[in-house]
Amino acid sequence: MTSRDTIFASIRRSLAVKGDERIRASIAEDRLDRSPKGVIPARAQLDAAGKLRLFVEKAEGVQATVARVASAKDVPGEVARYLRDNNLPAALRMGDDPRLSAMPWKETSIDVEKGRSHGLDLSAISHAESAIAETGTLALVSGHENPTTLNFLPDNHIVVLHAADLVSDLETIWQRIRKKFGKGEMPRTVNFITGPSRSGDIEQTILLGAHGPRALHIVVVEG
């Protein structure tokens, strides 16, 4: 008997499973099929403006900074301002997300480098797949458009969020993912990010910038 068999046999013995399992199996199948939602907090069930207000409040509450711009073409200007105000070099790493690539970076003095990070970049920019108003959380998915290394290696992470992609809750994100990738399928990585990296391991004092980014700047494109 393989270990796999041993474990399954032991589970079934403990659960006293024997004979016809069709009903049991159909109960599990059904749950996987229907994926019932459970309890959804009322907090974020708001109109678009309300969701954005809540998102900003929640994100700032966990030490992210948020800027709002009217349209995608305003993003490079805002990023340039952010880098300048924080005394950061005008250099930025990004993947090849078409939405980011289409922005007028040339109009700024920012040096843009494409591709994954190897740990030498001070600042990177990603495009969010979506975001959650309930908790001020960004959702990013892996791929060459927005490599996951950009979310963790640079000291400063800038994330662009289209206001139209902002949703109330995690459950809505699951629906979007299913629609985009297919039922039961996932991108390699989904990163939910709620504020910059932190640790409380030294006497439970919260310190920012443990291993991931020390700063998280969110640029919301409203138009």
Binding site: K58, V62, G115, T137, S142, M186, T189, V190, N191, F192
Partner: peptide, 24 residues
């Protein structure tokens, strides 16, 4: 656990690097 509404990083991983990936 910590009184946070969400921890900073909640990460879902499904399988190894894919053809469209540049890291992982």
């Amino acid at each position: 656990a910590t009184g946070q509404e969400m921890s900073v990083y909640t990460t879902l991983s499904t399988g190894p690097r894919r053809a469209t990936d540049v890291d992982g």
